[in-house]
Design a binder for these strands. Structure first.
Length: 647
RNA sequence: GCCGACGUAGCUCAGUCGGUAGAGCGCGUCCUUGGUAAGGACGAGGUCACGGGUUCGAGUCCCGUCGUCGGCUCCA
């Protein structure tokens, strides 16, 4: 056979001699494509452009128009980073340098840590190297030679990688220019000059293989994009995220604080944050009642024995606050609400006629998070879950899950999340032996989850072998206003606790049966959900949630009395109102109200006081002109009552 | 918990070579009564995170503790 057939994406075929490279194929299609080409996809696998094609194959040439090429591009950027670092700091030893969702990093070992100034130097050197445009060449060398070379260079991590990743006689090495070689299977962009837009962002600690006991490394983070414009957009988004940081807004808007004297990870809700929370909770409780949940309240501590029955003392020990020793027993601060709800279920003999039993609680729990992991409201030691447990019969499973999914969708809608993704975590089919529950239970539960999503036309990614050991689950991830996604809602089956507590109900047959237990939280926790809301809305809560809905701003001291009267009437109508009676200019008061992100500012001066009207300014629309009190209330009330997320 | 950086007024930050602390905003008082994003003057406000050490002398140098931030790991 003197020629091979190369099939192109449009279905056309090209006959070329064996050993033709993807780059040559690109050249034959068009010189422009060859210039733009970054990487090839041969029979579905990303491959260097320089790789020879030996047999019939389908070939796609990827350029910066193809998202798939970005990962390769960033991987090459990581190599560029390593090459530049070695030039400047030759004593540095290399670990791994993969692309990530947001960019790339390289783990490196060096005695003295890199400083931000070092990063600048490295970045400058990366530019200098890119300018020289060295080729990225893949060469195969004997494994023993690679090991010997790395050993000689003291590259202990590379040695380990070679030993671990391959036992082939030949290993693949990428060479960039004369000095830098990396054990890597690629692929890479043809040359470093192709990397047009990159930036080093930070340096952080890491461990070789993520193991605290191994060598500590420095992970240099960077990001790279196809164009300078894309990079700018990305960096601007990082800036935007910084501006929305709920810790910053929490302070500026006086929503909450964390007090050193009280301890880390413990949240103090200030009146304004507390107001938002109350309004959120009011909505939630209304929903729970309407959806047939029974609202319960349970203690914050319980005897140790309860946690032994539930298994927490055994499996959850490291995450719990240490027990307190009292006269009669050890007591344990609760890390979860489940055992308490189970005790309520168990407190009486249940008939199948009683099921489903849905117990809901805004239950405050305490978990001893490790000291380095706390993060504002998103990761704390004391938090309140919008928790519920549903105990039902096997044939109620599907409709109960459906109810939870619908409730979850309502949470998304009401709080203004128009995008979301869903993950369905299933077991391994019982192969690993690490899961509780019988195959029948798993089938029932997983079918219920699948069926509920199918009925609602919700697309989910199935995550095999990602379930909790006690049951499968659905996780809903909300995508916020700037495209970040947050895992909050979760609907989980639990085959473990009902067994440990010996739960039962009497069926129509007069015999005892085991109920199915579903655990669900939609906000996840009030703290975390609130934190996400702050960032989602950038602190500008919709009218129905805003801690102060309207500010009344008298223009001079002479209108204070009128302003107070207006405020009083609005409060009677149920609005949250503040009067700014300071002797400041109206421009100043408006500025402050704007910075506090108050939805409506009612400016009242001589004209309004005399005519009994209000001059209405909206935080986004600006001055909207003069209204009467009735007109304003008629406008605002429906927005509040409908909980309009966009108002 | 681990690695790194950091901790100065309520907030954001300056403080050189070790010589007992500054600015802006905010706060208070006064002046000003101004029509849609910052009017002016004066004033109060500090255990320089905490504890120890070095030094004639420590915000500054060293050690420890606590906390924060960025990561690792983990997670609602």
């Amino acid at each position: 056979m003197s020629h091979i057939a190369v099939t192109l994406p449009d279905g056309s075929q090209m006959r070329v001699p064996p050993g033709t490279t993807a780059h040559e194929v690109a050249e034959r299609i068009s010189p422009g494509l060859a210039r733009a080409a970054l990487v090839a996809e041969i029979d579905g696998t990303l491959t260097d452009l320089s790789a020879p094609i030996e047999g019939d194959a389908s070939v796609r040439i990827l350029t910066s128009r193809n998202e798939e090429a970005l990962e390769v591009y960033r991987h090459s950027a990581a190599h560029l980073l390593a090459a530049a670092t070695l030039e400047l700091f030759p004593e540095t030893k290399l670990g791994v340098g993969p692309p990530t969702k947001q960019g790339f990093f390289y783990d490196m070992q060096r005695e003295t840590p890199f400083t931000p100034a070092d990063l600048e130097k490295i970045e400058a050197r990366m530019r200098a190297i890119a300018k020289k445009d060295p080729k990225n060449e893949r060469v195969w060398i004997p494994r023993e030679e690679a090991l010997a070379d790395y050993k000689r260079q003291g590259e202990f991590m590379k040695c380990e990688l070679v030993e671990e990743k391959t036992d082939e006689p030949q290993v693949s090495i990428y060479k960039t220019g004369d000095r830098f070689t990396d054990f890597c299977r690629g692929p890479h962009v043809p040359s470093m000059g192709r990397i047009k837009a990159f930036k080093l962002l930070s340096v952080a600690g890491a461990y070789w293989k993520g193991d605290e006991k191994r060598e500590r490394l420095q992970r240099v983070y960077g990001t790279a994009f196809f164009s300078k414009k894309d990079l700018r957009v990305h960096l601007r988004r990082l800036e935007e995220a910084k501006k929305r940081d709920h810790r910053k807004l929490g302070r500026e808007l006086d929503l909450f604080s964390i007090q050193e004297l009280a301890g880390p990870g413990l949240i103090f809700w200030h009146p304004k944050g507390g107001t938002v929370r109350r309004v959120m909770e009011d909505w939630l409780r209304e929903q729970l009642v309407a959806r047939g949940y029974g609202l319960v309240s349970t203690p914050h501590v319980a005897r140790h024995g309860l946690w032994q029955t539930s298994g927490h003392t055994e499996f959850y020990k490291d995450d719990m606050f240490k027990p307190m020793e009292l006269d009669d027993s050890l007591y344990q601060l609760k890390p979860m609400n489940c055992p308490f709800h189970i005790l309520i279920y168990k407190n009486q003999l249940r008939s199948y006629r009683d099921l489903p039993v849905r117990l809901a609680e805004l239950g405050t729990v305490y978990r001893y998070e490790r000291s380095g992991v706390m993060h504002g409201l998103l990761r704390v030691r004391g938090f309140t879950q919008d928790d519920a447990h549903i105990f039902c019969t096997p044939d109620q499973v599907e409709s109960e899950v459906l109810g939870c999914v619908d409730f979850g969708m309502e949470v998304l809608r009401v709080f203004g999340f128009s995008q979301f993704t869903v993950e369905l975590s299933t077991w391994d089919g019982g192969k690993g032996g690490k899961y509780a529950g019988t195959p029948e239970e798993w089938k029932l539960a997983e079918d219920g989850l699948f069926e509920a999503l199918r009925k609602r036309g919700i697309e989910a990614s199935v995550m095999p072998d990602e379930a909790a050991f006690y049951g499968p689950k659905i996780d809903i991830k909300m995508v916020d206003a700037i495209g970040r996604s947050w895992q909050l809602s979760t609907i989980q089956f639990d085959f473990n606790l009902p067994r440990r507590f010996g739960l039962e109900y009497i069926g129509a047959d007069g015999k005892a049966h085991s109920p199915v237990m579903v655990h669900r939280a939609l906000w996840g926790s009030v703290e975390r959900f609130f934190g996400v809301l702050i960032e989602h809305y950038a602190g500008a809560f919709p009218l129905w949630l805003a801690p102060v809905q309207t500010a009344v701003l008298p223009i001079t001291d002479h209108q204070i009395e009128y302003a107070e009267a207006v405020a009083e009437e609005l409060r009677k109508a149920g609005l949250r109102v503040e009067v700014d009676g300071r002797s400041e200019k109206i421009g100043f008061k408006i500025r402050e109200a704007q910075l506090q992100k108050i939805p409506y500012m009612l400016v009242v001066g001589k004209r309004e006081a005399e005519s009994g009207t209000l001059s209405v300014r909206h935080r986004k629309k600006g001055d909207t002109g003069s209204r009467t009190m009735e007109e304003f209330l008629d406008h605002v009330r429906p927005l509040i009552e409908s909980r309009d997320a966009s108002a």
